[in-house]
């Protein structure tokens, strides 16, 4: 009505119809992204028959969670727990070692000039982009040569090589570390190690969090590498174990003789939950690191 006032206020705020459209579109996508996870949380509250007959998003009986858990423990003498322990061990070792090795390398790329720098940067970029699984079969042959196949090292050693982490560290130090600060430290007689320890690292807390998050995600979910490297089921990680379970029990194929296994759909849903709940929790905690610049500087022009 008062035409002179409208330009100073953002017009869209006062338009309920366009706000409703915005909300409806967002809700539609929220259903696509959110409902599968909701279903997964509810699935173990029902037994296998109820999963087919009850409405998909209904709650059965929460005590069914316990029953599904017991059924899961029967499978291979609670081998799921062993797989979970393996997953934690492989992931933690890989995350710690990959981050500890990548950060100083990225720091050196960002702060020092040295012979071979450009070659090493290029190799880092190339290996960073290479499809990981294209390297898995050659890596298997290499590990086989060192007689390391079917040992935890076959999974952990290749995971320590983390070119993307080196690249992100490089970008971080190149942008967040004031050169004057290093120069001042040098004038004051700090050696390079002291500069890194007292100036570089204290400025790299968010970098550590981001790298640990990305490395955790990649290693916890890594499937193809352990799938190829490990034969002994006692060494499996959770994703590999889950794959074996899914293809060898009536979980997904009710046509398999059902009498020799109690593993059905609710148990399948429960294993998936065991695998993803830790990640979901870390995800929610880590979102801000991603929004606030997972790739800051990655696309300098």
């Amino acid at each position: 009505m008062d035409a002179t006032l409208t330009p100073s206020k953002p017009r869209r705020k006062s338009d309920p119809a366009s706000w409703l459209l915005w909300l409806l579109v967002m809700l539609a996508f929220a259903i696509y992204f959110g409902v599968p996870i909701m279903w997964l949380l509810l699935a173990p509250t029902k037994n296998d028959g109820q999963l087919l007959t009850m409405p998909p998003l209904s709650i059965g009986d929460v005590s069914n969670y316990g029953r599904a858990w017991d059924n899961l423990m029967v499978y291979g003498n609670a081998i799921v727990l062993l797989w979970a322990r393996n997953s934690v061990f492989y992931t933690l070792t890989s995350v710690i070692l990959s981050v500890v090795i990548s950060v100083p390398a990225g720091y050196a790329f960002a702060t020092a000039k040295f012979a071979g720098r450009k070659l090493l940067m290029t190799l880092t970029l190339i290996t960073m982009i290479l499809p990981g699984s294209a390297m898995v079969l050659p890596l298997f042959l290499e590990m086989n040569f060192f007689r390391l196949v079917d040992t935890p090292w076959a999974v952990i050693l290749p995971a320590m090589f983390y070119p993307f982490g080196v690249y992100l560290s490089y970008v971080h130090f190149a942008t967040a570390l004031p050169k004057d600060l290093l120069a001042a430290g040098r004038v004051d007689g700090c050696n390079e190690w002291q500069l890194f320890w007292h100036i570089g690292l204290p400025l790299a807390k968010t970098l550590f969090a981001l790298l640990a998050f990305l490395s955790f995600l990649g290693n916890w979910n890594n499937y193809f590498l352990p799938f190829v490297m490990l034969n002994d089921s006692d060494l499996f990680s959770l994703p590999v174990g889950l794959q074996v379970m899914a293809t060898s029990t009536p979980m997904l194929n009710p046509t398999f003789a059902a009498e020799n296994s109690t593993l059905k759909r609710p148990e399948a849903a429960l294993v998936v939950l065991v695998l993803v709940v830790p990640v979901i929790l870390i995800f929610i905690a880590a979102q801000r690191f991603v929004v606030n610049g997972a790739l800051t500087g990655a696309t300098k022009e």
């Binding site: 995600l217 994703p239 979102q287």
Partner: peptide
Amino acid sequence: IFFVPGAFAGPA
């Protein structure tokens, strides 16, 4: 809500 499914990969 859109971000959380990123937790899923591979067999899961």
